[in-house]
Design a protein around this nucleic acid. Structure first.
Lengths: 185, 185
DNA sequence: GTCTATAATCCGATAGAC
DNA sequence: GTCTATCGGATTATAGAC
């Protein structure tokens, strides 16, 4: 991994941990083992570096999600697999946390990959729900609204877990939405 | 409103907008129309002022939520009223946003009111769900898990709305979870 | 490409006059 | 109580040597 790559990876890590406002160029340089001159040779400044990091993270998240959602099994099984995927729950969502950052949301460039990621995820989940309905699952549900609920449960599950410092809140929320989706009396 | 109060209210506003890391004492002073000496006369520093602000916000949130959840109507109607309450959706949740702040979560004092707020809300919602089950609603659902899902949907709804810069994502998520809860075929 | 030096500004806080 | 002055350190760069 060359210096440019280490800078991007360090930025991804620090954005996840501390957000954009809380991440300084100096901290990135130290984490990457690079000097100031090196960072400013590869990137014009903090915003450009953050954009490279966010875009890489967004693509990784999409790839991971699609692996579960386009895998084998019934629609409900694929959604359950996605929700139960191994996650670093207490660290939160790498993309979702950026929505709390005023400087990210205030920059159209930095915000675009965040918006696109959630748009993609909601659409993909709605497709899977529609596929399930063709098999007799999820009867009577609106795919778009239900997809939004599933994504929101995930994002909110991270909030509950971080609030209590334990993953239990996340797991309860996921258990609850799966019961609502699948075990419909 | 005296100076001390204006400092607390300004801190509440800025914590909501920019979080703890993104809020400087200087910004608080300017927002409150107070000088440095004035702020440091009333509070030992930024952490003490933030604690006063967070505690006041937590209590306000609890009071608001309890007004809907302990109001008139069936359990499902009270939950719907709570979810449909007027909110400044694009500004996000004043308490939930703090879970993304590493310095808040790293301070046991600042984190306690955040954790207590979510504990209280989950418990209160679980009680309401249990009341509904006594009336034949929510059959077959686990109250604790379902309560976690409802709270997570709200918190995640804010994330979806902020990601797209429009409240539609929030409203979809709420619509989806209410359909799952109430219109159970 | 990477390094060190330098700089203007801001940060969180203290001191002391009024 | 509130104000201004001041502080040491961090931030976000730029300049220029190597």
């Amino acid at each position: 991994m060359d210096t440019r790559d280490r800078l991007i990876e360090s930025t991804r890590e620090l954005l996840w941990e501390r957000g954009y406002v809380g991440t300084s160029p100096k901290a990135i340089q130290q984490h990457a083992g690079a000097g100031q001159g090196s960072m400013y040779h590869h990137f014009a400044g903090k915003p450009e570096l953050a954009l490279a990091a966010v875009e890489r993270t967004a693509e990784a998240l999409r790839t991971q999600a699609d692996a579960e959602l386009s895998g084998p099994g019934k629609a409900s099984e694929r959604i359950a697999a996605y929700l139960h995927r191994e996650r670093e729950i207490l660290r939160g969502c790498q993309i979702g946390r950026l929505t709390q950052d005023p400087e990210v949301m205030g920059s159209p460039e930095l915000r675009r990959p965040v918006e696109e990621t959630f748009d993609w995820l909601r659409n993909r989940l709605a497709e899977v729900i529609t596929e399930g309905q063709a098999d007799g699952e999820f009867t009577g549900l609106d795919p778009a609204a239900t997809a939004a609920t599933v994504v929101a449960t995930l994002q909110g599950g991270y909030v509950l877990a971080r609030a209590s410092g334990a993953s239990e809140g996340f797991e309860r929320a996921v258990e609850g939405v799966l019961n609502l989706l699948v075990r419909r009396p």
